[in-house]
Design a protein around this nucleic acid. Structure first.
Lengths: 229, 229
DNA sequence: TAGATTGTTAATCGATTAACAATC
DNA sequence: TAGATTGTTAATCGATTAACAATC
């Protein structure tokens, strides 16, 4: 009865596997070992086998995994075997780019609505979508069968929008706004935050340089002996 | 000599703390406890104190942290106390949105160049940047003092571009292309991948529904007894 | 001083990986 | 059968958190 709680990071990797299997399939690769797939994904092969074991046995011992078959199984697990209806809130530069992001469509994600508070933008078309008034959020959400809200507003309005989406019955939120949001436990939220990733990058570069200049002052020349990878 | 390796996730959280401290400072909050800050960031208070302890003692026992002071210290650690020069490769919908992303500027990130292979786009202006020919990547990188490459191309060209950026001396890459990239060990890379996040979201929604319908068939009504959070 | 909150240790928790029996 | 690779266990590694002495 009590099923094992599967970690988010495992699901994340499943999606990486599926993506790369789709690529291999397109290249007409028919069979792949966990070791080779691990190479492509930048992951440990035991990790892959462990991740898959949460859901069943998909491989053939001594052989590996049939690409088409494993891909099919993963798509079923991830519910990539159907369309998902997205709604965008906040049609700024980023929001507009997401509306026109063709990669989503290939993956089964379709925007069915977009919302703005800016009167100038309401009624305009971006991609295939006519922008709605944010005041009609609840109505349009229900009419269009929106299932997932994509938040591309600023920090200040994000929580209020989330509350309204939750009340309207939305079960998932992809948040691009730089703020931690509150949702009830049967609603799920994922954060996309590239400013933080830039911060991490800059820290790593700086601390690497600090490290090197320290080494250089002790062993002059040592740091300049760069190897190719 | 051998300094403790600080986990990426700690740096990630440091950036979250800094962001929220900046917000608190703007609201004229002067002192904050780890418990309250933890609330805002959606993190355990012991976690915050542990993360900070990697870098020093920034608080006052019995009091908490002075917002302005801690913010200043974090910005110094993260090297947010200077400008960073970004270069964009691939000016599609997403790339163009990033070029015009005003939030970056506030954080000290400035695009100094953008590159395309599409002749139609070369020479056009987006935001403050004139798009360069990708063939001049190495030249323009050096001339503009580009430090970080932001990859917003498709999967197929990403690795080749990374190799050229690395040869041109770039030390950090923010990658939006859906592919695992190879870099030498003194070059750092961060991935932004919102399609995967959508996949995780859909899995969570689906598995939650599967769970609920299972419960409902055993204890009818149980699932409909929704509590507010 | 009494109350509060930090900095830090030690315990807990969870995720990764090596190793190998099972088996194609 | 011999060789290869999975599925799974057990060991390792690392991150989170509770607890509390230090101290403002």
């Amino acid at each position: 009865m009590k099923s094992v709680k599967i970690p988010s990071i495992t699901i994340y990797r499943l999606s990486v596997y599926a993506r790369n299997l789709a690529y291999l399939d397109k290249k007409n690769v028919e069979v792949i070992s966990s070791e080779h797939l691990a190479d492509i994904c930048g992951i440990n092969p035991a990790q892959i086998r462990k991740d898959l074991a949460y859901f069943g046995e998909f491989g053939v011992r001594g052989v590996g995994y049939y690409v088409k078959d494993l891909l099919y199984q993963l798509q079923k697990i991830l519910r990539q075997d159907r369309q998902w209806h997205l709604g965008l809130i906040g049609v700024g530069n980023l929001g507009a780019a997401l509306l026109q992001h063709t990669h989503f469509l290939k993956q089964g994600y379709v925007f069915v609505a977009a919302f703005e508070k800016d009167e100038q933008k309401i009624g305009k078309r971006v991609g295939n979508i006519i922008i709605s008034d944010i005041r009609n959020l609840e109505d349009v959400t229900k009419k269009t069968g929106m299932e997932i809200g994509v938040i591309a507003t600023g920090r200040s309005s994000a929580q209020e929008i989330v509350d309204r989406l939750v009340d309207a019955g939305i079960k998932g939120i992809l948040n691009f706004a730089p703020i931690q949001l509150q949702v009830p436990e049967n609603v799920f939220i994922e954060y996309v935050d590239f400013t933080i990733k830039l911060d991490v990058l800059c820290y790593r570069i700086s601390s690497n340089e600090r490290e090197r200049s320290k080494l250089n002052s002790i062993f002059p020349k040592a740091g300049s002996n760069d190897k190719k990878y």
